[in-house]
Amino acid sequence: MSALAHLLPEFEGWKARYPAGFEGSLTIPCLQRIQEVHGWVSDAHIDALVDYLGVPRTQVDEVLGFYTMLRREPIGRHHLQVCHNVSCTLRGAEGLLAHLCLRLGVAPGETTPDGRFTLSTVECLASCGTAPMLMVNAAYHENLTPASVDALLEALP
């Protein structure tokens, strides 16, 4: 239980708006919050969560394996996610990705050696009309140009 002690008051607060018997539903919100605070979900977190919610361990493992936003290991400080679905591709997503690969010296799926950036591709983020776009951590950045991407990266710590 100790790995989650600091988050439990918050989790308890969420229950008020759920119907009784919906404890299992908290699996995903709890994992999201754990990741938000710790960057990724560890074995200790899983053990504590299974204990707290009373859900089967397999359910938590399946959830962690299924959803692309949940992580079992740390990544770079800034997660750059380039949408490479149809609308973005028609507006230059390949070039945006090329620009980032060249600038950071990594391929999609990799992290820079200094641990600053992880570069990924993602599917449609409902930003098709303002393509090309990328997400930096939780924030959308749209209608990108080489100059705006460079300025964006330089402004990041």
Binding site: H84, G92, A93, E94, G95, L96, L97, A98, H99, C101, L102, A107, P108, T121, P132, L144, T145, P146
Partner: peptide
């Protein structure tokens, strides 16, 4: 808007189709 970057990427990766 990124045509120039894409061309540089291709020059650096002869024969490869696209970064994604």
């Amino acid at each position: 808007p990124f045509a120039e970057s894409l061309a540089r990427w291709h020059a650096a990766h002869p024969g490869a189709l696209a970064p994604s």
